[in-house]
Simulated scan of single mutants.
Amino acid sequence: MDAIRHITDEDGILSIDFLAGFTVFILALIMVISLVPGFLAGIQSENIDYDAVAYRTSVILVEDPGAPQNPSWNLMGAYDMEHKDDIQRLGLTVSKDTPNILSREKVDKFFNRTPDFTFTAEDYREKVIFGDFTYLYNISLRLETESESYYAVGGDEVPTFQYGYMRRLVKVKEPSVAEINSTRLGPYTGVIDKNITSTSADFAVQIPYDVLINRSVNPAYRIDPQSEQLMINLTGLWSHLNGTDIESMNFTRMGLYKQLDDGSTILIPGLYPWANDTYSLKVNGTAVPATGGSPESVSNSSVITMVLYPPLPFSNEITSVLNVNFNFSYVYANNITDHNYLTGAYQYDYTTNVTQPELVDAVMEVAIW
């Protein structure tokens, strides 16, 4: 009986080893539980992180002009890849003072619409998205024009969950254009004696940098020869000059001249042949040489298009003037009346001579995952 009672008394006692082990287990469990929320918080915040990256990317694109700014990044390696590594940030705005107004030149460069120049996926990650993680992305821009242009880079398939998204309403600054036609050529008509059977003469389009680079003009509407292209369209020349009197009219050559302080001009050398990173020249949509080659016949339907790419020659010299000289030759059919030809200097400025830069509504969308 005593033996039975002794065993029963010992049965409810826990050993010291068991208590120590149980205590260590509880402490370890508490530590593990305290660490779990930290792990879960990192997992649960992924969506917020993607949204933050998408927002930051959209801010860089539509509120920042990018870097470097002088010269602007879109002018670096305009037609080659040589200086692409010097570009630090791919902001698209015209300037830091024009948030949500995008430069057409930068838009074309960013969306790989410039010949022989391409940004890679790594370029976009390093120069606009940033971050240590290898993000996937889709960046698009839809212009609300008559033709509704759409540009996009990145992946086509955006996931249905765990991605960041931003939509921004912006405007794209389109370049200026000098539409020189029969209604604008009145003051630029020369007259020669009816007995002269042929002649040739220059018709100049004058680009005064001091007028264009005017800081009082809002950058959103400023014609900037340092960072934006300028376009010249010549149409309706024959009909303006009374085609019944002209047997033939030919476009013979084009030259770029720097105007000196005394009004004289000098030819700028080294800017030929017809297509390079300075300009392009087309007659009826076909590229032609600026000098040499066969003269191009001009008729009522002829269109001569000249595009000057930024930065224009000597545009860093604010007081300089650039002349674009178009030379035409004429053969006259009769000697009944005095003959007409094109002459003088047409001003590329902020008057009705030039179609001013237009702001086109657009939508920028950024998806990051």
Rank of each mutant, 00 (worst) to 15 (best):
H6T: 13
S320R: 11
V107P: 01
P269Q: 13
P159F: 10
E63F: 05
G21S: 09
N325Y: 13
T352R: 14
D108Q: 00
V36P: 10
V94L: 07
R5I: 07
S103T: 08
D156Q: 02
D210S: 13
A54K: 10
N327D: 11
K282T: 14
P357G: 06
P310G: 05
G186W: 06
V158H: 06
A367W: 05
V354M: 05
V354L: 06
N323V: 06
E63Q: 13
R104T: 14
G255R: 14
S200R: 15
L92G: 11
T252H: 06
L90T: 07
F328A: 03
V211R: 04
N325H: 14
L256M: 07
L260N: 14
V191Q: 15
R125S: 07
I129Q: 04
S301I: 00
T244P: 09
A121S: 15
V172P: 01
Q347N: 02
A54M: 12
S34Q: 14
T265S: 15
V307I: 15
K84G: 13
E105S: 08
N112L: 13
S264M: 08
K173A: 03
V303E: 02
Q356H: 12
N284T: 10
L256P: 01
M1H: 15
P310F: 04
R56S: 06
E148I: 12
G270Q: 10
T343I: 11
D261W: 06
V191I: 15
S147A: 03
S103A: 11
S264T: 14
N284K: 13
P313E: 09
V331F: 07
S149D: 06
P273C: 08
T57A: 08
L92T: 02
L359A: 06
I246S: 09
L61F: 05
D277W: 08
L136E: 13
S216Q: 14
F39W: 05
V283Q: 07
L169G: 12
A333D: 14
V217P: 02
V307E: 08
M81W: 05
